[in-house]
C-alpha cells in the first residue's frame, strides 16, 4: 500500500481545487465542487503522490489530455474503505426491528445501498436477509459513482487480511453461523458465495447529479455524505427522501446527523444511536 501521508511539502490551495473541479465538470460532467474540502484536498494530494505528479496543474493537464486516466482518477479520488457489518449493533437493530417492521405491511422489501463502494455492506445485508429466511423476498439495488469499484463489489472478492475485521464484526452482530460459511478461500482471497447476490442489481449512479430512479422501503447511505459539504448534503438528502416510500427508512452513519439539514422535519428518529430515520412526510 502507498503511504498515505508522505509529505511532499506542497499544500493544495483552494484555487487549485477549483481549477481541478472545473476541468472535471466541463470535460467529464462529474461535479466535485461541493465535496468537503478537508477530505477532498487530502484525496487530491493522495492522487498526486500515487502518480508522482508535482502539482495540481500537472494532474489537470493529464485529465484534460488522457480520457482513459479519468476512470483511475475517480477510483482514487473517492473513498472506498468499508467493512462487513460495520457497527454490528446497527445490523442487529435492522434484523430485530427495522426489517420485521417493514414486512408487517409488505410481502416484499426493496433496499437501496446508495454509495455501495466495494460491496461489503451489500453482502452483510444479504447475509442478514438469508439468516432471516427472507432473501427471496428482497429486491436490492446497489449503486456507486465508480465503475471499477462496482466490478469489485460484483466479484465479491476480498483480501483475506480484511476478513479478520469482518469476522469480528459478524461475531459482534451475533450472526447465527460463522462468516466463513459465506465465502471460500481461493488463492489467498475470500470469494463470497454468489447465491447471496441473486436479488441484487449493481448499477452506476451519481448521487450528486443522478435523478431519482426508483422508490425503496429502506435506503442505506452510511458514511457517504460525510465527504460532501452541507449544501450538497441537503441536495442529496432531498433525493434520498424522494427515493423512499412514505414510512420507509433511511440509515446514515453513526456519527452523521440530520439535525442541521433542511429536510429533518420530514423524518423522525427511529434509533438515534444507530442513526436510523423514518420518512413521515412526502
Amino acid at each position: 500500500m502507498t503511504p498515505l501521508f508522505t509529505d511532499n511539502g506542497n499544500d493544495i490551495d483552494i484555487a487549485d481545487v477549483r481549477k481541478l473541479t472545473d476541468l472535471v465538470k466541463q470535460r467529464y460532467g462529474y461535479d466535485f465542487k461541493d465535496y468537503a474540502m478537508s477530505s477532498f484536498r487530502r484525496r487530491i494530494k493522495r492522487v498526486l503522490e500515487l502518480y508522482k505528479l508535482k502539482s495540481v496543474d500537472k494532474l489537470i493537464a493529464i485529465l484534460d489530455s488522457n480520457t482513459d486516466f479519468f476512470e483511475e482518477f475517480i477510483s482514487e479520488i473517492t473513498v472506498n474503505v468499508t467493512e462487513m457489518f460495520r457497527d454490528p449493533t446497527f445490523w442487529k437493530i435492522l434484523k430485530e426491528q427495522i426489517i420485521p417492521n417493514i414486512l408487517l405491511s409488505h410481502d416484499k422489501i426493496s433496499i437501496w445501498h446508495a454509495g455501495c463502494s466495494s460491496g461489503e455492506e451489500v453482502y452483510s445485508m444479504s447475509i442478514v436477509l438469508q439468516e432471516m429466511g427472507i432473501l427471496d423476498k428482497a429486491r436490492i439495488v446497489a449503486t456507486d459513482l465508480d465503475t471499477a469499484i462496482i466490478k469489485k463489489a460484483q466479484s465479491g472478492t476480498y483480501s483475506m487480511k480484511n476478513m479478520d475485521v469482518n469476522r469480528k464484526n459478524y461475531q459482534r452482530y451475533m450472526g447465527v453461523h460463522s462468516l466463513d460459511d459465506y465465502f471460500k478461500e481461493v488463492n489467498g482471497e475470500a470469494v463470497m458465495d454468489k447465491a447471496l447476490m441473486q436479488n441484487v442489481s449493481f448499477r452506476r449512479h451519481d448521487l450528486v447529479q443522478g435523478a431519482v430512479f426508483s422508490k425503496f422501503d429502506l435506503v442505506l447511505c452510511r458514511n457517504v455524505m460525510i465527504y460532501f459539504n452541507q449544501t450538497l448534503q441537503n441536495n442529496v438528502l432531498n433525493r434520498l427522501h424522494e427515493s423512499l416510500f412514505k414510512y420507509g427508512y433511511l440509515a446514515i452513519g453513526s456519527k452523521e446527523s440530520l439535525i442541521w439539514c433542511e429536510i429533518a422535519n420530514k423524518f423522525i428518529v427511529v434509533n438515534n444511536e444507530e442513526k436510523i430515520y423514518k420518512k413521515i412526510k412526502d
Partner: peptide, 29 residues
C-alpha cells in the same frame, strides 16, 4: 478533521499510522 466554514468533518478514510482516528489528520486540517 477541521472543515472550512467553522465546522468539523469526519472521515472514514484508511487508517493512518495504524489508527482511525489519526492525529496527523486532525492536526493537518
Amino acid at each position: 478533521c477541521i472543515e472550512l466554514g467553522n465546522t468539523i468533518a469526519l472521515s472514514s478514510e484508511d487508517l493512518v499510522n495504524n489508527s482511525r482516528p489519526a492525529i496527523d489528520h486532525t492536526f493537518e486540517t
